[in-house]
């Protein structure tokens, strides 16, 4: 319930996603759900049974009047148990949903961080593309493109490391290899 930082949620979700903890938690949660469902069912059944008994009792009879009090007592007890079991039952699902949402939010924050880091290198890569137009106009084109390639390589490495291209071949490198081939 507390608005904890995303790093805390990330570490909690990491711990929970490990196979040993996950399987143990699943077993415990299933056991609790079944136990609490039985508890709720039992309370509802006893409330219904006691209410039927109360409706049958004769208020003029002294013995019935005494037993009415004890039955009412039992009804309130059963109702208390129903709320207790129902509360625990509902809380299991609420906790599960809260964990899901918190883990999702932490993942989204990570994705946004990676994506925002990825936008910076793409704007930075636009600068080296203008280099060949100014330096390699009259002299031998193959030598200058080789020089440019060595100049650009560190920047490419930076983009690969930061943005994490899935195919492993950034767009700048593709452009230069085409140029040197021609």
């Amino acid at each position: 319930m507390l608005p904890l930082p995303h790093t805390v949620w990330r570490s909690i979700s990491k711990v929970l996603r490990t196979s040993a903890v996950d399987s143990a938690l699943t077993f415990i949660v299933r056991f609790l759900v079944v136990g609490l469902a039985i508890g709720v069912f039992d309370s509802v059944q006893s409330i219904q049974g006691l209410q039927e008994q109360i409706s049958v009792t004769d208020p003029n009879d002294l013995y019935s009047a005494m037993s009415l009090s004890s039955r009412k007592q039992r009804i309130f007890r059963a109702e208390r148990n129903l709320y207790l079991a129902g509360f625990c039952f509902a809380l299991i699902f609420i906790i599960r949903r809260l964990f899901q949402l918190a883990a999702k939010n932490a993942d989204l924050v990570d994705e946004i961080k990676i994506a925002s880091q990825g936008t910076r290198p793409t704007t930075a890569n636009q600068q080296p593309s203008s280099v060949p137009a100014t330096s390699g106009t009259e002299s031998a084109p193959t030598n200058t493109t080789d020089q440019e390639l060595t100049e650009v390589t560190p920047i490419e490495n930076e983009t690969e490391a930061s943005s994490g291209h899935e195919d492993g071949v950034p767009r700048q490198r593709r452009g230069f290899t085409q140029g040197s081939d021609s």
């Binding site: 636009q126 700048q172 452009g175």
Partner: peptide, 16 residues
């Protein structure tokens, strides 16, 4: 931003 960067690189190779 990615297509504009690609356009700039193709323009550079064309000039070369």
């Amino acid at each position: 931003t990615a297509p504009s960067a690609a356009n700039q690189t193709t323009a550079g190779t064309a000039r070369r």
